[in-house]
Design a protein around this nucleic acid. Structure first.
Length: 302
DNA sequence: TACGGTCAAGGTAGT
DNA sequence: ACTACCTTGACCGTA
């Protein structure tokens, strides 16, 4: 069985969990307005996903804009914790698994302690969001970052700086990237931290190391206690290697199906978001009628 | 209202 | 040295 999801926004609904603002206009009032917008759209997306048969969603990092910034103006966890708890419970009820994926600025393996501290701040924010949502199977996906001219030292720093981050480690999963860290190397870091591994198929195609996709998935799936997560993307043929296409190519979908060792949660990372599924993947969508719709359309037994 | 330059942060690779 | 790119476009001043 496969569950499908997509990141950050829904093009059909024109809903996004990534509404943000400029640092120059950072005030409590402005941030509160953006959070309200993001949470409202998150709820719309969760409900839409249930109807359409999707089972995963990645929340954008701007859910609470600038939450990890030193100038952030209020206690966001206290202010929004209640609403996050409600939405997390709703997600569970609607069968939606939630995740976050901090970006390229988050480098806990950096040799610069200031970069490490800022990175940890963003990771703590992300983990706190998942805690407040109350989602047991929530995932916080992260790349290993740079190599800084010495891969071994970089990997050791990465592990050392995350060791002891209990709340982060509870949700953390590590992902391979397209140039620097292949699945095999990510597995080493993940094993050291006791966290699972997300295989990204496009990154793997560009940076496979010695492993076939099937081997990579086989090893990665062993690291999961909950249902394994995979990232699926396709190359935009008109752009440089690594650029995401609007939709997943049929052949990439077929290749993943062939290589999957078992049930998986597949996060589809394409520009077309929920519209970017290949035709053959649509059979894995499992539409659920709402109670009202069910009453309206189903025959009565009495 | 639409457009286009710009936006917290890091690091790499190509030019 | 400069630029494009990345998990993800959205913001905002100006016309």
């Amino acid at each position: 069985m496969i569950r499908l999801g997509y990141p950050c926004e829904n093009l059909t609904l024109r809903a996004s969990t990534n509404h943000t603002l400029r640092l120059a206009s950072l005030t409590e009032e402005r941030v509160q307005a953006k959070v309200a917008e993001n949470l409202k759209d998150l709820e719309r997306i969760l409900r839409w996903n249930r109807e359409a048969g999707f089972g995963l969603f990645r929340i954008g990092q701007h859910l609470v804009p600038f939450a990890s910034h030193p100038h952030f103006p209020y206690d966001w966890a206290k202010a929004h914790g209640g609403e996050l708890g409600r939405l997390g419970a709703l997600a569970q009820a609607l069968g939606q698994r939630l995740s976050l994926h901090p970006g390229q600025y988050v480098n806990p393996g950096s040799p610069d302690p200031r970069v490490v501290e800022r990175s940890l701040a963003e990771l703590r924010y992300s983990a706190r969001v998942l805690t407040l949502l109350g989602v047991e199977d929530g995932v916080l996906v992260l790349h290993l970052g740079g190599t800084y001219g010495d891969r071994e030292k970089a990997l050791r720093r990465f592990v050392a700086n995350l060791q002891g981050e209990r709340e982060v480690l509870r949700f953390l999963a590590l992902e391979n990237d397209e140039r620097l860290w292949s699945v095999k190397e990510v597995l080493r870091a993940a094993e050291a931290l006791g966290v699972p591994v997300v295989v990204d198929t496009l990154h793997h195609a560009l940076n496979p190391g010695q492993l076939s996709l099937e081997e990579a998935l086989g090893l990665a799936f062993l690291t999961w206690g909950t249902r394994p997560k995979v990232h699926l993307a396709s190359q935009d043929p008109r752009k440089r290697p690594g650029a995401h296409a609007f939709a997943v190519a049929e052949e990439d979908w077929e290749a993943l199906l062939q290589a999957l060792p078992g049930p998986a949660d597949v996060m589809v990372e394409v520009k077309g978001k929920e519209q970017g599924l290949p035709e053959k993947a649509r059979v894995y969508l499992s539409p659920q009628a709402t109670p009202t719709a069910a009453h309206a359309t189903e025959g009565r037994s009495f």
